[in-house]
Amino acid sequence: MDERELHLYDFKTLEMATDNFSYENKLGEGGFGCVYKGTLMEGGIVAVKRLSRISDQGIEELKNEVRLIAKLQHRNLVRLLGCCIEVKEKLLIYEFMENKSLNIFLFDKKKSSMLNWKMRFDIICGIARGLLYLHHDSRFKIIHRDLKVSNILLDKDMTPKISDFGMARIFGNDQTEAETTKVVGTYGYMSPEYAMDGLFSTKSDVFSFGVLVLEIVSGTKNRGTFYTTSQLNLLGHIWTLWKEGNALEVLLDESVGDKYSKDEVLRCIQIGLLCVQEQPEDRPSMSKVLVMLSSETMELPQPTYPGFFIVKRRDDTESSSKMDESMTINEVTVTVIDPR
Rank of each mutant, 00 (worst) to 15 (best):
G33N: 14
E5G: 03
M119C: 04
L102R: 02
E5P: 04
Q73N: 15
K71D: 13
A178N: 12
I123L: 06
I271V: 15
I162D: 01
E296N: 11
V336Q: 05
V217Y: 03
D19I: 06
F226W: 08
C125Y: 01
I124K: 00
A70N: 14
N233L: 04
L134W: 02
L274C: 10
T297V: 06
D19C: 10
I143G: 06
R139S: 05
G28W: 09
R67H: 11
L212I: 15
R139F: 00
S294H: 11
V87T: 10
L134Q: 05
V87P: 00
W239Y: 14
G31W: 03
N151E: 08
S201M: 06
L232I: 04
F308D: 13
C34I: 08
I85T: 10
T328I: 10
K26E: 07
Y194E: 06
Q73M: 12
N233W: 01
L241S: 10
G58L: 11
V183S: 03
T159K: 10
I142G: 09
S22V: 08
S201R: 09
E61R: 12
E29A: 09
T240H: 07
R50W: 05
S201K: 08
S113G: 00
T220Q: 11
V311C: 09
N25C: 13
I124H: 01
G166T: 11
D10E: 12
K182S: 12
M1Q: 09
D108M: 05
S208E: 08
G44I: 10
K312G: 05
L81E: 13
H144D: 09
W117L: 01
Y9Q: 03
I329C: 05
V256N: 01
L51W: 12
K37M: 15
F309H: 10
S295W: 03
F107H: 07
K322E: 11
I123F: 01
P303L: 04
H237W: 15
L68M: 14
E15Q: 11
V66M: 15
V78K: 02
L300R: 03
H135E: 05
S52H: 14
I337P: 02
L154P: 02
K141T: 08
S138T: 07
K26R: 15
E318A: 12
F171C: 12
T220V: 13
P306V: 07
E296K: 04
T333L: 08
E264N: 06
R50Y: 06
